[in-house]
């Protein structure tokens, strides 16, 4: 930490030019403040406040969340409550009030923790992420953004600028977090479910689990099983088994592989039910 400097660039180009393996991008700083202690190679913090945008916008067909939007902003947004309630739930369960006031959505996603809470909730509404790097601006599906724990396609050389997802009247979502306590907890397992419905028929399902693999994961077999099925005809035990057999979590300091595997399947099932019955 000796000689750690903070640089405040005045434009995107200047910020991008500063990025390398030994820099951290800092926005709210809630992850970075801890990581500077554990990553001694980092000598420079690049402050993106003032460069990137903050806020939530609604267009005719979509919702846009700019990178510097805080978890509190998301929690309190009526637009999010209407179009992505799982994201509201996820952000409201991140850490505690002080951290939600500082931590940004752009930061939570860029940090690429497999346990990040906003990520599964963004994935189940089919979010697209826009980022800039030396080659210019790119927009890709968020599910293609993560390459490993702490790693993204930006490879520490880019900045996330915004997220966008389509407004869908027929989409119901829900989110569940399993942590070691009721606040300030890193998820042992988290889960978001998104169901695009035609009446009681599932047109498309997104079943996403966090903290059970190197990146947040779509459970493809479970999604395929639900595809085109009427909810009443869903065999919940079959669904459970598909999830259970699709994942291969590990033991770590927070929990065990066996626990994660079973609980992930349990919460996937209960979140599916919540999304259908109670979700919006």
């Amino acid at each position: 930490m000796v000689g750690l400097s903070i640089v405040k660039p005045t434009c995107l180009e200047e910020a991008l030019a500063l990025l390398n393996d030994d820099t951290f991008v800092i926005a709210g700083g809630t992850d970075v403040a801890i990581q500077v202690h554990t990553k001694p190679n980092v000598t420079k913090l690049v402050d993106v406040n003032g460069i990137l945008k903050k806020g939530i916008e609604e267009t005719k067909d979509s919702v846009i969340i700019y990178a510097l939007t805080t978890h509190t902003d998301v929690m309190e947004s009526p637009i999010i409550a209407k179009w992505a309630p799982a994201l509201k739930q996820a952000c409201s369960q991140v850490a505690a009030t002080q951290i939600r006031n500082m931590g940004t959505i752009g930061g939570n996603v860029s940090n690429a923790s497999p346990a990040g809470d906003s990520i599964p909730a963004l994935l189940v509404v089919d979010t697209k992420v826009t980022y800039v790097d030396a080659q210019g601006e790119k927009t890709i599906a968020l599910k293609d953004f993560f390459t490993g724990p702490g790693k993204t396609v930006m490879n520490k050389r880019g900045l996330v600028t915004k997220f966008e997802f389509a407004k869908a009247d027929n989409l119901k979502t829900a989110f569940t977090k399993v942590g070691k306590r009721n606040a300030m907890a890193i998820s042992v397992v988290n889960c978001a479910v998104g169901l695009y419905l035609d009446g009681d028929k599932i047109e498309k399902a997104n079943i996403v689990l966090g903290s059970i693999a190197p990146t947040t994961l779509h459970i493809k077999k479970a999604e395929e099983y639900l595809f085109g099925r009427k909810f009443a005809e869903v065999d919940l035990n079959a669904f459970w088994s598909l999830v259970f057999n699709s994942i291969n979590p590990i033991d770590d300091i927070r929990s065990t592989a066996a626990y994660r595997k079973q609980v992930a399947a349990n919460v996937a099932r209960s979140t599916l039910i919540t999304a259908y019955e109670g979700g919006k």
Binding site: Y225, L226, F227
Partner: peptide
């Protein structure tokens, strides 16, 4: 257990 039928 594996489900009896798997969609798709």
């Amino acid at each position: 257990r594996e489900p009896a039928t798997i969609g798709v």
